[in-house]
Design a protein around this nucleic acid. Structure first.
Length: 637
DNA sequence: TTCCAACCAC
């Protein structure tokens, strides 16, 4: 299609050279109408904007018009040059004979205003068109959907059908992006089937994508499975859907299937694979992907995904190398790196990077500031946090939102300023949501404020009676205060509602396999060896002064039993597995689904000292790098 | 016309 057009242009050009070579500079002075119009047509097809405009003015003076195809070429040329005023002039010239242009040309004009993002002008053209075909409607719909006018876009889809115009695949792929919920999505889907468009790859990939965005990944998967496809983007849609929804294993499985079907991966596929690695903390797999990037290594999005993968897999060395090597860095690259440093306990480095971003990089945005405040809250930098929070509107025009409020409550709460945290919550611009209260409840636990915890816990359970995390946190807080009857009462409510604590799970990547451990796990093939080693280690730990911290044991157990439950926490099992198997010069990298408990934290610190190992634990929020008996979080998490 | 990147709590 494109090459055909190119040939046509070259052919026209050559003819033009033959016919007009001697008169090209003075031809606009000719007054012969047929010469004028030929000249105009040739200039338009050559996309010579300024001379075509001059020629058009001559035509205007003679009251002559060219054909629709010529004008469409000229308008495309205006769009390509982003020449708004010239575009308007062409539009005016075309309308000057008093007749409405034919639908095709009107669509081209409509499209021009849409490309210039002049929606009012586009709307006027659209309203005045005597006849509107599917292209006219679809152009308007995509204009609205690109500008997030969801209701208008959906409204037009209904109106076009009322006027008897059948939507096509273009229409649906545009409108799917603005669909405002599952209800609408299912209606659109049935419309797609009704019009027989459900085999179009554009429609299918958009459908899969939107199902995934509305959390109905399985419906998206059905769309995918309905028919075998060799279309890379349809594959990318479903792989991306799984990767973004925390279903990394399925994303990786599908990627393997795609590769064995003989499809080559592109940067979008690899970006999703990296995202899956990030979610699963598969550093080694991520490294392999990195090693295979080759000619894609300058792709910005892919590099950003790579950065995030290294940060979230706890390898800041690699992240720093990627960041430094990147030829192009956008606000996402900087924000990712700042948040990554903060999550890995390198608060000062994070804030320094933020300073250099201010002088060398793009303007920080909403998310950058979340990372900055996160850095402050996890390092106890109350004054800095206040400063950044108060100045972000003035300096970067960022209005504080839920995430910033959350960080501030976290900052004040963690620092033990619970009163300030409450005052802050009451003064917030928005209603405190469940997240804010949860953050405060976490702070109550750290600072053992039982009364406030009970108050906040009630607040949360009013908003979300099934919130198991809150029950767990409350029962932990009661356990801290030895209030075993209250612990039992909370447990009873949980049992009554059928709520269960999410079982703690830790995993470690070793020899291209993921080894997962649950509390008191007896299933792992090497469990006997692990327990033997654990007992040896425990003896040595006791000698250096380790005392099991039973505060976090939920059940109302006594003494030694409590210690037993602690001793087989999943992260301890995973650490010991790592000590046995991972070569001594390499870090032992563990991933956890829940936050690490105090006892395991102490355990890991001491192990890193007596075994002289680097241990890295990723919990759902941040990293702990243990070296020589010290943790990068500074015992503040 | 479709796919791919960063953020609070857990």
């Amino acid at each position: 299609m494109k090459s055909h057009h190119l040939l046509k242009t070259i052919a026209t050009h050559n003819v033009r050279e033959l016919l007009f070579s001697s008169s090209s500079s003075s031809s606009s002075s000719s007054s012969n109408p047929s010469v004028l119009i030929d000249e105009f047509i040739n200039l338009c097809h050559r996309r010579d904007l300024s001379r075509a405009m001059e020629a058009m003015n001559s035509l205007q003076r003679h009251g002559i018009q060219a054909d629709a195809v010529t004008y469409s070429e000229l308008i495309k040329c205006c769009v390509a040059h982003r020449a708004i005023e010239q575009g308007r002039a062409v539009h005016k010239h075309i309308s000057s004979n008093g007749h409405a242009p034919q639908t095709f040309l009107n669509n081209v004009i409509l499209n021009m205003y849409v490309k210039f993002n002049l929606l009012d002008d586009a709307g006027n053209v659209f309203d005045e068109m005597p006849e509107r075909n599917v292209v006219s409607w679809t152009t308007m719909i995509s204009a609205y959907s690109n500008n997030k006018f969801d209701r208008e876009a959906l409204g037009l889809l209904v109106m076009m059908q009322r006027e008897g115009v059948r939507p096509n695949m273009f229409t649906f792929s545009s409108v799917l992006r603005v669909c405002d919920g599952l209800e609408t999505l299912r209606q659109l889907h049935s419309g797609i089937v009704k019009f027989g468009l459900d085999s179009d790859v554009f429609v299918r990939s958009a459908l899969i994508d939107v199902y995934a965005k509305w959390g109905e990944l399985d419906d998206g998967f059905c769309v995918f499975k309905e028919m075998v496809t060799g279309d890379l983007i349809v594959w990318n849609s479903i792989i991306g859907g799984f990767a973004q929804n925390g279903r990394g294993e399925e994303a990786l499985d599908l990627f393997k299937m795609m590769r064995s079907a003989g499809l080559p991966a592109n940067q979008a596929s690899l970006t999703s694979v990296l995202r899956a690695c990030t979610g699963l903390a598969l550093l080694e797999l991520g490294r392999q992907v990195h090693a295979h990037l080759l000619k894609l290594e300058s792709d910005l999005i892919l590099n950003n995904a790579l950065l995030d993968m290294y940060c979230k897999c706890g390898s800041l060395e690699d992240a720093n190398i990627v960041f430094k090597r990147m030829l192009e860095r956008d606000v996402i690259s900087w924000s990712t790196m700042i948040a990554g440093l903060a999550q890995n306990g390198q608060t000062m480095e994070a804030l320094e990077l933020f300073e250099s971003m201010k002088s060398l990089g793009p303007t920080p945005n909403y998310i950058t500031m979340v990372g900055v405040l996160f850095a402050c809250s996890h390092a106890g930098l109350v004054d800095d946090g206040w400063y950044y929070f108060r100045s972000m509107k003035r300096l970067f025009d960022v209005d504080p939102g839920r995430e910033h409020y959350g960080c501030m409550v976290d900052l004040l709460g963690r620092a033990g300023k619970l009163d300030d945290a409450i005052r802050f919550i009451l003064k917030m611009q928005c209603q405190p949501d469940i997240t804010i209260w949860r953050i405060l409840l976490g702070a109550c636990r750290v600072h053992r404020n039982l009364d406030l915890a009970i108050f906040v816990g009630k607040k949360i359970l009013e908003l979300e009676p099934e919130d198991e995390g809150t029950y767990i946190l409350l029962s932990n807080i009661y356990a801290n205060s030895q209030r075993w009857e209250d612990v039992a009462a909370v447990r009873k409510i949980m049992d009554g509602r059928g709520l269960k604590k999410e079982p703690g799970c830790s995993w470690i990547e070793f020899n291209k396999k993921v080894h997962a451990f649950m509390i008191g796990d007896k299933l792992h093939p090497e469990i006997d060896e692990i327990i033997m080693k654990m007992n040896l280690l425990m003896r040595r730990l006791m000698e250096v002064g380790y005392v099991p911290d039973t505060n976090f044991v939920l059940h109302d157990l006594e003494g030694e039993q409590k210690e037993d439950a602690l001793q087989y926490h999943s992260e301890k099992l995973a650490i010991v597995f790592g000590l046995i198997n991972v070569p001594t010069e390499k870090p032992v990298r563990i991933i956890k689904n829940l936050r690490i408990c105090c006892d395991c934290h102490t355990f890991a610190k001491l192990i890193s000292m007596i075994e002289n190992r680097h241990i890295v634990i990723r919990d759902p929020v941040r990293f702990h790098h243990f070296r020589n008996g010290v943790c990068s979080c500074g015992d503040y998490w």
